[in-house]
Every structure is written in structure tokens, then in C-alpha cells.
Amino acid sequence: MKRTIIIAILMILSITLIGCGSQSEAIIIWHDKEESVISVIEDYLAETLPELEINFVHKESLTDTLKLVGNNKSTAPDMYFFAHDKIGLFAEIGILAPISDFIDINTFDDYVEMTVEAATYKDVMYQLPLYYETLLFMYNKDRLSEDEVPTTSEELYTYMQENTDARRYAFVEQYSNAYYSAGWIHGFGGQILDQEGNPTLDSQEVIDAVTYHEKFIEFMPQGQAEYATVNTLFLERKANSIIAGPWLVPQARENGIDLGFATMPTIDETNLPIAPYAGVQGIHVLKVQADQPERKAKITQIINALTNPEIGVDLALVSGAAPANDLAYLDSQISSDELVMAMKEAAINAVPMPNLPQMDVMWTTTSSMLTQIYLNDADILASITEAQEDSEDLIDLMN
């Protein structure tokens, strides 16, 4: 019996060692992306680095899993492909390697400045940016001509007054959502969170932005500002214009909408444009794997290969997102793409989503504040004060 148990244990150990050896040969990259996006990168790397075995693994709850295994050499991936906004959290818990460990930092002189800013936390760059997305002002050309597109907030307000009726809205947006309403706050020179991770909801700029924005909501759906409702109104031609993400574009075109893109209106009170958040998608490296010389050498090859502007072109063509590498815009396929170039122009004023750990708190408290004000008709100052206090308390608990 004892001999049988020993043999069984030896067999399990041998299988485990074989599995570890196999895994150690391949570079593992976790992601949460669509198959079309991953196929572009897989095909490119297979052609560029045929000597390397690279496995992309779709991972549900990617960020939560990384919190648990990011420092574990046997279970952590080598890299992951995700948005930039968790960089601060993962840098603080010590699982990320600086991207400068693998590539000359001067390479990023050729990148869209906003993407480099997004990838940087406490003066250290932790992401290789591949592409970015931001909200856009879109309109139905059958309902709104290019000459009629509002260029200022007051022009937009007048257009809404004159063109909203029981059949159709002139303009819609997700006004009670922090991600969507942040553009108005930035247009007043405000911010939700400062660079040190302190909530700033009770600043005069935020108060002014929320107060000013309220009058526009009178001419939008009352009590219904969620994603599905707002987008459906535009897709069903019951709204002439919308602030939305590029992910709405394929559906709009499938529905036969003659889609136009315009720059964000300028706020008359500040002479600043509505400036939405931008999300930058890219490659991050796990320190625990990069500390192994053989793996670091392979990771370095992959990182450098993915700086080729060609990958940005190919990703833009399948996703509609805008390349992070400025050199990609020299390609005529990109420079002639109306959607991609609209995002390129929007990147001039777009604000990278804060990559500070404290932002996890602010998404919840800010959206709750906006819901109270815009959907429940709560007092603006009282709601802002409560949200500021809640944010401070929750961030204190984090610390």
C-alpha cells in the first residue's frame, strides 16, 4: 500500500513538472479583448517572432485575478493586455515592471502625448500603449447638417430648445454617469480627483459644471440616462445627436445612419471644450516573470516588436480605435478613416482616465452624486458635500 502511494505521488510530481516546463517555454499574455483584436496581434507576432511561443489567454475578472496571483511566478502571466486605469493600483502592490526595462524610453517621442501620460504613474511608465478610445460628438446627418452642428455649449442649448419635441430629442448623453459627465467638469477646469489622489468634488469648478449642466438635462430623457436608453434613442433615430464612444459606430452604421463626427462644443463660460476621459489599451509586464533573465529576453523582443506602427494600423482597421503610435497616421488607410481621425483630433483635449488607485472610489461616489442631482432632483450643494465626505472616508479606509 505504501509503495503504491509513493508511486502515485511520483507520477503526480512528474506530470506537474512537465506542465511547468511546457508553460515556462511559452510567453503568456492575459487579455479581455475581442477575438478580432487578438488575432491581429497573434498573427503579427507569429510572423515577426516565429521562434517564440506566445499564448494569448482570455481571462474573465482579469484585474481581480491579478491582485491574487500577480506576484506568484507559477500562476502569473508574463504580460497582460488591458486599459491603463489600473496601473496605479498594480504599481502600488508591486507587480508591474517599468516598460523602460525593455525598451528605450525615447521610442515614445513618436507616440500620442496623451497615451504616454496615461501609461505613466509617479513618473514611471508601466504600459506599452497600443491604441486608445474616447467619447465623440456624433450626429445623424439626415437630421443635422454639418453647418448646423453646435460649436459652443450655448449653441447646443439653443439647438436643444428648438429641436426637442414629443417625437425626437435634439441631443442625448448619459448625464448621470461619471465617465460621461466628466467631460463637462473638465470643461470648467475641474477634476474629480487631483494628482495626489484627493477627491475634489466640492471644488468651485465642479459645482459650477454640475450647476450649468443641469439646464441641458431638461431637454433630455427624464429619469432615464443609462447606456441602453440613450444609445437606443440615437440608433432608432429618436435623437439627432449624441456624445458616445466609438463602440456605438458599428451599430449606427448597420442601422443605416449617415454618421457625422464633430469636435466637442466649447463651454461659453470658460472658453474650454467639453473634454471627456480617454482610455488607453496596451501591454503591461509582470515583474515576477521579468525578473527571470530568459523570460525577460523574450518579453523584450515582444515589446519592441509591438512598437511597429504597422500593428497600430491593423488594430485600428479592425477595432475603429486610434493608434497610440503617431507614425501610424502616415498610412493612408488611417488618415482617410473618419472615425479614427475624429478620435485623433479629440485626443488633443481628452483627459486620460486617472490611473490612481483612489479612482475606484470616485467612480461610485461621483455617479451616485450625479444620480441624486439629475435624476432625484436633490440639492446640488448638499449632494456634492455628501459625495465629497463619502469619497474622503472611503479613501481613508483604502489607506
Rank of each mutant, 00 (worst) to 15 (best):
E205R: 04
I87F: 08
N140V: 08
M398N: 06
S176T: 07
G256R: 08
H213E: 13
Q281M: 14
I103Y: 02
G190M: 03
P150Y: 03
K33Q: 15
G183S: 06
W363Y: 15
T63Q: 15
K344T: 06
I299T: 02
L62D: 11
A118Y: 00
A244P: 06
R143G: 06
N240A: 15
L17M: 13
T300D: 06
A321F: 03
H186Y: 07
G94W: 08
G94S: 11
L397D: 11
V340Y: 00
L394W: 04
D379T: 05
F188R: 00
S145K: 12
V112H: 02
E60Y: 14
V340F: 02
S36T: 14
T16H: 12
L62H: 13
D32T: 13
Y131A: 07
I54Q: 12
N240Y: 12
P357I: 03
I384H: 01
V149H: 05
V249S: 07
K86F: 14
L52C: 12
L286G: 05
T151V: 13
T307K: 00
K215H: 14
P323R: 01
R3P: 08
S203C: 08
N304Q: 14
Q301V: 07
L89H: 15
R237A: 12
P77R: 08
G189H: 01
I207K: 13
L13Y: 12
Q191I: 07
M160T: 02
N163G: 03
A178M: 04
L235Y: 09
H213D: 07
S61H: 14
W184A: 04
F188C: 02
V210P: 00
T300G: 06
Q195Y: 11
T48Q: 14
I93W: 12
Y111P: 00
I395Q: 00
G223T: 09
L136K: 04
L156I: 05
T385G: 14
N355W: 00
A350K: 02
I334P: 01
A209N: 05
M353K: 07
T371L: 07
A321E: 02
Y131V: 11
L327I: 09
